[in-house]
Nucleic acid binder design. Structure first.
Length: 417
RNA sequence: GUGAGCGUAGCUCAGUAGGUUAGAGCACAAGGUUGUGGCCCUUGGGGUCGUGGGUUCGAGUCCCAUCGCUCACCCCA
């Protein structure tokens, strides 16, 4: 027996229904904020992610599904959505007609990681990207719609962490301060951090090892190093969040794992998620578009993990959907009429099921009950002779005799539910 | 990539210090009503005990290997 690839799951049953409902809710809400959907390819040139996400990040270094196609070109199954959206935007030169653009996407992403709770190799993300707005109003747009989505789904018990990473002007000063702070503490650092210190000193800040935690208490904070513009931006954002009554917690340890962020970064965590507690994360990435060879466009965006979101939905309701009619067919001579009735009803807009094995009346009715049919039509040889069928209400248990002719007249109104 | 725990029926699990034909509940099917569901009763189908090797008179049970799943580290949505 061939089974699915590790970390690649089949989504079916209740989960599939919740998935659909969640998607339509997202589309409905994002429309209120005037976000437009983009459906982008799953496969992109590897270079897009190397340059976009950053060569030194874990995602690019060891988590991408990368392979050569038949022409020898290196392709990668997208590990995230932002780089693709930026590529799309520049490729179609959409900023030419409108300098303020808002997009969203929903779809599968791929990362080669060891699966665990809340972590799959193929997982789904919904994300938004806002282009062209340097002002923190971009953050407010993105964050307010996110908060509304979470509240509509009914997810509480989340913490919203926010931080600023500064810009090209102020971050070098901070990196230097960090570097010299850790310089004489080499022996106190965990193995990972020794490596980080050279490659990406910012990441020292969010190390989780207890060994490093002590250092971090005394480590310099990025927010103390922000230049005036960055500080004003951050302050103004906080004021806007107050205006919208969005509660947040400043957390200088939020630095994010992708290279493209500047200024605002944020994460939404939930304690109920397990070790992979991030439900949603994002930030501002003003340089990415230009870095990818495109137009110089400020941008802000976030992405949320759909599976993680679903695992938080504590909805115990029954997701097996009821059907309108079950048609019980008794005897060989009733089959022809029965199958015609079924076809008629379906094309009149009713959901209909029947027993293709034509079991006993008892087993057909059992099946009608199990499938949650609202009404059952019973059609046997006797009924055919009389030109009628029995219409049975499955909740009341009452039966009535109806002339088959009424179906052909399209007179379904009396059974509307 | 590292570590820990777990693999017995479609599902959730029992299975006693190794000992006859491996069990239960749920689910499924048939019947109890010569054409009527839910509740109840009866009966039935379904398992190479993850796989391979070893120890033993005898292995679901002990040992080794392997595969898979889960959780955690790491990382991230």
């Amino acid at each position: 027996m061939i089974h699915s690839i590790r970390g690649f799951n089949d989504i079916y049953g209740k989960e599939s229904v919740i998935f659909q409902k969640l998607e339509s809710l997202l589309r409905e809400i994002l429309k209120l904020w005037n976000f437009k959907e983009v459906r982008l390819p799953i496969l992109e040139k590897t270079e897009l992610f190397q340059r976009g996400i950053g060569d030194d990040t874990d995602i690019v270094e060891k988590e991408m599904y990368t392979f050569y196609d038949r022409n020898g070109e290196s392709l990668t199954m997208r590990p995230e959505g932002t780089a693709s959206v930026v590529r799309f935007l520049n490729e179609h030169k959409l900023y030419g007609s409108d300098r303020y653009l808002k997009f969203f996407y929903i779809g599968p992403m791929f990362r080669y990681e060891r699966p665990q709770k809340g972590r799959l190799r193929q997982f789904h993300q919904a994300g938004i990207e806002i282009f062209g707005l340097p002002h923190p109003l971009a953050e407010l747009e993105g964050i307010s719609v996110l908060q509304y989505i979470l509240s509509r789904i009914g997810i509480t018990d989340t913490t919203f962490y926010i931080n600023s990473l500064g810009c090209d002007l102020c971050r070098p000063g901070y990196k230097e301060a960090l570097f010299s702070f850790f310089d004489n503490k080499e022996e106190h650092l965990c193995e990972d951090c020794k490596r980080r210190k050279i490659k990406n000193p910012l990441r020292l800040i969010d190390c989780k090892s207890t060994k490093c935690q002590e250092n971090l208490e005394k480590a310099p904070k990025i927010t103390d190093f922000l230049c005036n513009n960055c500080k004003n931006h951050f302050d103004e954002l906080k004021n806007l969040l107050f205006l919208y009554n969005i509660s947040f917690e400043e957390n200088p340890k939020i630095v994010r794992g992708l290279d493209y962020y500047n200024r605002t970064v944020f994460e939404v965590h939930s304690k109920s998620l397990g070790a992979q507690s991030a439900l949603c994360a994002g930030g501002r990435y003003d340089r990415l578009s230009k870095d990818l060879g495109g137009f110089d466009l400020p941008a802000f965006g976030w992405a949320m993990g759909i599976e993680r979101l679903i695992s938080l939905i504590t909805d115990s309701s029954d997701y097996s959907e009821e059907i309108d009619f079950f048609v019980v067919i008794i005897g060989e001579s009733a089959k022809k009429e029965g199958l015609t009735v079924i076809d008629r009803l379906r094309k009149a807009g009713y959901s209909v099921e029947y027993d293709t094995f034509f079991g006993s009346v008892k087993s057909q009715l059992r099946r009608a009950d199990k499938l949650k049919a609202k009404k059952t039509i019973i059609l046997g040889e006797d009924e055919i002779k009389r030109g009628v069928f029995i219409l049975k209400d499955m909740k009341e248990g009452k039966e009535e005799v109806v002339e088959i002719n009424k179906l052909w007249k399209g007179d379904f109104v009396k059974w509307s539910f």
